[in-house]
Design a protein around this nucleic acid. Structure first.
Lengths: 130, 130
DNA sequence: TCCATTGTACGAGGAGCATCGTAGTTCGGA
DNA sequence: TCCGAACTACGATGCTCCTCGTACAATGGA
């Protein structure tokens, strides 16, 4: 037990992850983060979940370390928010920040991913088709 | 002089450039093409021009060969259309195709670029501020 | 205390990319 | 026919990225 300085709602002892401030998020970075198929997939799943998912929940066809890598890229580029909860690390889209900075951008991209999945018969995107 | 098979409106003797068919354009490719600041800049200028620009018109702070490279990436990823006109090569956004495939995507990205430029005081994007 | 779960750090391999300079091609006009 | 303008092809350089395996750390529960 320790009298720590973690903000309200965060379990004491949680490790802290650095996120870019909202003002520091750059469009080119966001696009770059979403330009990778694996990361686009992650973001689609997070959007579909409309809440938190841990890394394992996304069931990516890559190794654990690669998974860690992609989630970190998304976080460092301002696309997702990550918090430790016990042994798990929960991930959520930074929708509020992104919608505020770039209104319609994320919606447009998610919608485009959906449409493309429909066209190609994929099962990846926001979950409506798989 | 030669009886060639170039489509109507294209000066005879023009070299032909390969473009991906509309159905072959992939979201991740488009995002990747736009994830580079230089290419995002190009696309913003083309959108502002609402017509054709040649490479030199975009006045990029890179060498000619790098310029060629970026335009080719944009073309091969389905973002722009390129046609030779004499010694010049004209470039235009494939708005119809992109809007048809991914409604709202390009608008969202262009708008985001504009907003970011306003916030940061840049002069790059669609031209409204520079 | 011990262990399973979850995720990280680190380094490596292989691929791809952004950039450049130089030499060459295509075109239109003098 | 010759020249300049616009652009390309090619190779090189240095950086970044995606992927992985292995070893390690933090947490919660038995």
């Amino acid at each position: 037990m320790q009298t720590d300085t973690t903000p309200a709602g965060v379990p004491s002892g949680s490790r802290v992850l650095e996120h870019p401030r909202r003002e520091a998020i750059r469009l080119a970075d966001v696009l770059h983060a979403l330009a990778d198929p694996m990361r686009l997939r992650i973001v689609c799943r997070l959007a579909a979940a409309d809440g938190e998912l841990n890394c394992a929940d996304t069931e990516l066809p890559v190794s654990k370390s690669t998974c860690t890598h992609h989630f970190r890229v998304l976080r460092e580029h301002g696309v997702i928010q990550q918090i430790y909860r016990g042994t798990a690390k929960m991930n959520a889209l930074r929708r509020t920040d992104l919608d505020d900075l770039f209104p319609g951008l994320i919606d447009g991209i998610l919608r485009a991913a959906d449409l493309q999945a429909e066209r190609l018969g994929n099962t990846c995107p926001t979950g409506h088709s798989g």
